[in-house]
Design a protein around this nucleic acid. Structure first.
Lengths: 118, 118
DNA sequence: GGGTATAGGGATAATTTTAGCCCTATGCTA
DNA sequence: TAGCATAGGGCTAAAATTATCCCTATACCC
């Protein structure tokens, strides 16, 4: 898996956080896990447009970045749960503010008529 | 120029805002413009690792998304200034929170030893 | 046995994003 | 005249990110 790295050319804090939450599904995943959806299958059901594969990759990267912790239960069929770490919890205010902005924007498309909806 | 679109598959607000500020240099550009650096040449000097070309592209996209406004003065040599629109101004709290998180993180790398610095 | 569900890996393709190079045009200064 | 600064566009290549397809393994149910 291509290891994400901190881009040296972005020295502001923005580069740092983008590095961590910049993946297409990552903010949603953090949000989902925060809301109590811990298991991969749940997360998959919540994000049906994403492939299993992609979600697992993004979860792996979040884990490598210390945002979530993966707990494997030695049972069959396998059971895995993800939890936010302290670092991950510290991201919540950021995630919330971002999500609020975006939601408000979506509810008020008139704010910006030029934006194309795919 | 490849038109960015709102990805339909991300229905949460996160997808929306990511669409807008997700470009590599965009958050920094918004930050810079906010701080009063309005001219393209200034922005270029502030982000020496970015090509002129890329900065212009990202500025264009920010303009298309209604975040900044481009003002051309009919003088020679040409003079252009960028300003945050109301929509752009509404992004500032978001940008600030993100930047603060990232900065704190950078100042405290011990928080997460596993992260590779490129 | 054939189907479900669980969680995930490998390899590769497609897409998106970013970067690099060279082009335009004008006026100023040396 | 040559060089610098201003602000950009066109085209193409490279790099990064996402998606697709098929593979593993186990236990349960019918």
């Amino acid at each position: 898996m291509a290891k994400r790295k901190i881009p040296k050319d972005l020295d502001c804090g923005m580069g740092m956080i983008m590095e961590i939450i910049g993946g297409k599904w990552k903010p949603c995943l953090i949000h989902n896990i925060w809301k109590g959806h811990k298991r991969p299958s749940e997360l998959q059901r919540l994000n049906p447009k994403a492939t299993r594969r992609v979600l697992y990759q993004q979860l792996q990267e979040l884990e490598e970045h210390g945002i979530i912790r993966r707990v494997v239960y030695p049972v069959l069929p396998p059971k895995v749960e993800y939890f936010l770490t302290d670092l991950g919890l510290s991201l919540l205010p950021v995630i919330s503010v971002m999500d609020e902005w975006g939601t408000q924007y979506l509810e008020n498309p008139g704010l910006h008529p030029k934006l194309k909806i795919a």
